[in-house]
């Protein structure tokens, strides 16, 4: 549905994108994960035809954005990173206006407005001016304005930016449900959990380059990442070290031990040996393999706002 080949873009001296390739299949939610300044918004802008690429091609539903911009925009919805709404208008008035730009009018426009207001749960506040909305409500309306014309493809640029965790979960649910109607989505974020929860495939982008892409499992494998197990108790390192042959120990001290364990069977084996040797364990915590680790491995940095 979306095919991006060899995209490069620079702003003066800043190389915002270099050689970005990815493809998104129909009905897929594709995650675009990267820290600030990675090139997420630039990629979205090029797919939407707002920016011209220095080189490379973008095809949406088989149409080249550089040649068929107007037709692409007809089936494309964009949810911008910034809340782009008329604050002095109500939610309904906003949606009527934005829908009208796509040629919707009359009954159809009113019907679609009601539909997306329902999806984002703003039906009961539809006639209040946006100015009076909370941050989360504005985000939801911003999202609905990208859905008003029933696009086949939606580009979501950090749609949960700057709102509390509760409201974020709410938006993720909306997207999951909204997109179940066969919509194809590109979802950019710098929240790992969001990409993990929402996306079937994920690309990790940093400094304008895609470092890795694939399903969550593929990425984790790629980075050789396993579960991180932390064990605390009244033990000394001399007591436990003979029991941990063949296991990557990250941190080892008296009373505390952190190890990297590649799979489930190795995990139960290691913990079993500690228990049967009678080591006094007080607490065991297991962190499942995550993109966090993958990102760390790939970039050597943590991914944070």
């Amino acid at each position: 549905m979306i095919e991006v080949r060899g995209l490069a873009k620079s702003f003066g001296d800043v190389q915002a994108l270099s050689g970005v390739d990815f493809a998104v299949g129909e009905g897929e939610i594709f995650g675009f994960l990267g820290p600030n300044g990675a090139g997420k918004t630039t990629t979205i802008s090029i797919i939407a035809g707002l920016l011209g690429a220095d080189s490379g091609t973008v095809r949406v539903n088989g149409m080249d954005i550089a040649k068929d911009g107007t037709r692409v925009r007809q089936i494309l919805g964009v949810v911008p990173q910034d809340i782009a709404l008329y604050e002095e208008l109500t939610a309904r008035e906003n949606l009527h206006f934005w829908g009208g730009l796509y040629g919707l009018a009359g009954k159809k426009l009113r019907g679609e407005t009601d539909r997306v207001l329902e999806i984002v749960g703003l039906s009961d506040r539809a006639d209040d001016p946006v100015r009076e909305y909370s941050g989360g409500m504005k985000r939801r309306l911003n999202l609905s304005a990208g859905l008003i014309h029933g696009p086949k493809v939606i580009l979501l640029d950090e749609p949960t930016l700057g709102i509390d965790p509760q409201a974020r979960l709410n938006i993720l649910d909306i997207i999951r449900n909204g997109v179940s109607g066969g919509m194809t989505a590109v979802y950019t974020t710098h929240y790992l959990e969001e990409a993990e929860k929402l996306c079937s495939r994920i690309a990790i982008i940093d400094h304008g380059k895609i470092l890795a892409q694939g399903t969550l499992a593929e990425l984790v494998m790629l980075a050789g990442e396993g579960s991180v197990v932390t064990v605390t108790g009244a033990f000394s390192s001399a007591q436990v070290s003979p029991l941990l042959k063949g296991i990557t120990v990250e941190h080892f001290g008296d009373g505390s031990l952190r190890m990297m364990i590649p799979g489930r069977s190795e995990l139960s084996g290691a913990l079993g040996r500690l228990f049967s040797a009678g080591i006094p364990i007080e607490d065991v915590s297991i962190r499942e393999p995550s993109l966090e680790g993958v990102f760390m491995k790939l970039t050597g940095r943590e991914l944070r706002d």
Binding site: T70, G77, V78, P80, A145
Partner: peptide, 14 residues
Amino acid sequence: STGVLRRYAYSPAG
């Protein structure tokens, strides 16, 4: 400055 103008540009309106 609010990006509203950019949203116009996402639409097919030239």
